[in-house]
Design a protein around this nucleic acid. Sequence first.
DNA 1: CCCCAACTAGACCCGTGAGTCTAACTTAAG
DNA 2: CTTAAGTTAGACTCACGGGTCTAGTTGGGG
Lengths: 209, 209
Amino acid sequence: MSPPPDRGRIDKRKDILDAAFTVFAREGYPQARVDQIAAEAGVAKATVYNHFGDKACLFREAIAALSERALARNLAAVARLAEAGDDLPATLTNVGLHLVDCYCDPQSWALRRLLYAETPQFPDLLELTRVGVAEPVTQALADRLARLALEGHIDISDPALAAEHLTALLNGPLEARSRFGTRRIPRLERKAITESAVATFLSAFTPRP
Amino acid sequence: MSPPPDRGRIDKRKDILDAAFTVFAREGYPQARVDQIAAEAGVAKATVYNHFGDKACLFREAIAALSERALARNLAAVARLAEAGDDLPATLTNVGLHLVDCYCDPQSWALRRLLYAETPQFPDLLELTRVGVAEPVTQALADRLARLALEGHIDISDPALAAEHLTALLNGPLEARSRFGTRRIPRLERKAITESAVATFLSAFTPRP
DNA sequence: CCCCAACTAGACCCGTGAGTCTAACTTAAG
DNA sequence: CTTAAGTTAGACTCACGGGTCTAGTTGGGG
């Protein structure tokens, strides 16, 4: 008996997917050569075609696999808002910092780049990441913010909007500063960006006396 | 005597550049075929190679040409802050709306997509648009905001930061809503996005009693 | 009117990369 | 041991597109 449908010797599938994303990220979809992916995975080209029968399918699955990881990381960051202590600015900054770290992850930038580039050719991928990553994360953040609003810590009428604005304030500065993901933003700068974003956010949504 | 260095019959250069950007925008750089660009421009392929000797050069020049236009449009939008009347929220919303219109322009999205996609292959283009578009616009916006702060309308200590946050609030929501430039955002939605962004911005930067 | 430079249509060369095929090898299962 | 599925290296086909070349056309300046 085999654990899952255990085909072949060892499951090279994951190796191939990882290698595929690496190469796609580095070269872009059209420039990436399947031979290169196979080499990176330490696998014969035929094996790649055995598992995914097509460069396009391989691309889709590589993106999908990475999206799952991205979702998990983002949700983990947002979940930290649950353990909100009495110091709201501190916890919000903490969460913001973790979100910023997610956005700054090289793989995350690569994902963005590939989506931007291939949206015309692969509109389904955009949909996949939207309903599979962006929306759940914004949703979760909105839920958390609604909680905080109920407890009277902040003055929010539309949690979804507040979530949108908070992510915008965190995300917006990163694009230019990281040169579209080309430049690595040092930790100190990330911290400064996060703190000013949170400061503006809180200043906008703090109950007026 | 010829007006500028008027070579040839008529100057097909501009036609080619326009066609090039159109095709690059639609297909992406690697997928775009030079034959297609020539056809779109109503010109022989050889003519394209006469003017720009290379697909890569053509790409660079097409991007550069469009960047200039983008800069002009953006600066025009920001300049409207100069004629600030007594109703700050109204003028800010007006400017915001024009900026949002700039961002939502299909060519603008295409430019973003191409930059994201080709940043690894053409790092110089990123730099070109950064110092040639993004920075001047943010700079101009920061200058205007500083003026308003001096006049006591808003409470801003760091104009550059405020400009960064305002553009983030305007821009951020567009990315998801427009599906990376795939979907056209109706005027009413653009207006709503702008108004909420301006509201949050003003709420954050309005002098506290 | 003539000439020259730019332009045109289209054939052409050639490198490249997706996908296939083969023949041999490896290993897990029976 | 035998079998079969999966893997491997590498040769191979084929379409495609960047870039060149040629021979002929066009139109404005002298």
